[in-house]
Write a protein that binds this DNA or RNA. Structure first.
Lengths: 175, 175
DNA sequence: CCTCATAAGTCTTATTTCAAGACTAATAAA
DNA sequence: TTTATTAGTCTTGAAATAAGACTTATGAGG
């Protein structure tokens, strides 16, 4: 039997990033999903593309299916064979994935330019991804973002605290 | 001596995601960086915030410094003590991080709403992050994106191939 | 001087995860 | 009957992580 990840301590935390990491925070899931976005769907194809241990691949696919990120669907009978496809929830990881890809492009591409180029079919241009504010549409700079707790326990203190580090301010594990 | 990660096989690959994962693809780096974005800067604060093993924290911080994602700067003399601050390269990971956070918010927040709320100081509104096309500004849907190799080896075949799976099409490990 | 406290690690041991690759099951095709 | 496909499962050893005691450098208080 495949042993499940023990790393779900994270999923208990009241932190959206920790919960996301409990799903795709291991060493392979995002690479598997990248392949899925490239239309890779079958076990053998994932394996030869990624050179991942079969055992780990099987476990990771099962986990992503259990989390609803991938769907396991039969593509033939006799013998029944399944393929893995992105669900809406899986597709919703695209911004995170493309942000990492473009970060890698920016800081690690060699003189030949980035290994792959993305084109937006709707407008016909090659593009980079730009993270914007849903309210005003402006590109986001982390220095312009304030955060505060969502479920008000403490009366909504804005976190960009001054230098007074109460040693617990950011300790709440909220993100 | 701290053993370095052995996982740099990835960094050899001609794949921007793999290179990004070689830097922040382990179980802790993104959580450490989240804290850094929340103005956590000192070893003890990272440790108590994340409940990470000190050994792993030390190794991860050293790695992030070596990669230029964090800078290690003295904040006092006698004894010399250092803190860790995001560099530009580290700040550039914000889109990826916030995309994961908002994905977690969307799919895992309970009835109380997301654990933290982001406000864009420039416009004064709470927001979600929206990934847009740098060329036309429209929100990106993965189904509208075509990709092709950047360093033209093969004459630029667009990858959203039809159902003809050549079993090697996406195998090139390019992303 | 002596003891305690702080901050930033380093080290040890046990557990968990991953890598590599042989082996199995179900079925079709030769 | 033998071989080929596809999607796994299993075994073994290596690497990474968890938990927490120990170390170093220094200042503070008595």
């Amino acid at each position: 039997m495949l042993p499940a990840m023990k790393w779900n301590a994270l999923s208990e935390e009241n932190c959206s990033l920790a919960r996301a990491m409990a799903v795709v925070g291991d060493r392979w899931s995002l690479l598997i999903l990248r392949d899925a976005f490239l239309r890779v769907r079958r076990f053998e194809d994932f394996e030869s593309s990624l050179k991942i241990a079969r055992r780990v691949l099987a476990e990771r696919l099962a986990h992503l299916v259990a989390e609803g990120v991938l769907a396991k669907l039969p593509y033939q009978e006799r013998p029944v064979r399944y393929e893995y496809r992105l669900t809406e929830k899986g597709l919703a990881l695209y911004p995170a994935l493309i942000a990492l890809v473009h970060w890698g492009d920016h800081y690690y591409a060699d003189e030949n330019g980035p290994p792959i180029i993305h084109r937006h079919r709707n407008c016909g241009h090659d593009f980079r991804s730009v993270m914007t504010c849903s309210a005003c549409g402006e590109a986001l700079d982390p220095r312009d973002v304030d955060i505060r707790p969502g479920q008000p326990r403490q009366p909504a203190s804005v976190i960009p605290a001054s230098r007074s580090r109460s040693r617990k301010a950011a300790t709440q594990s909220r993100t």
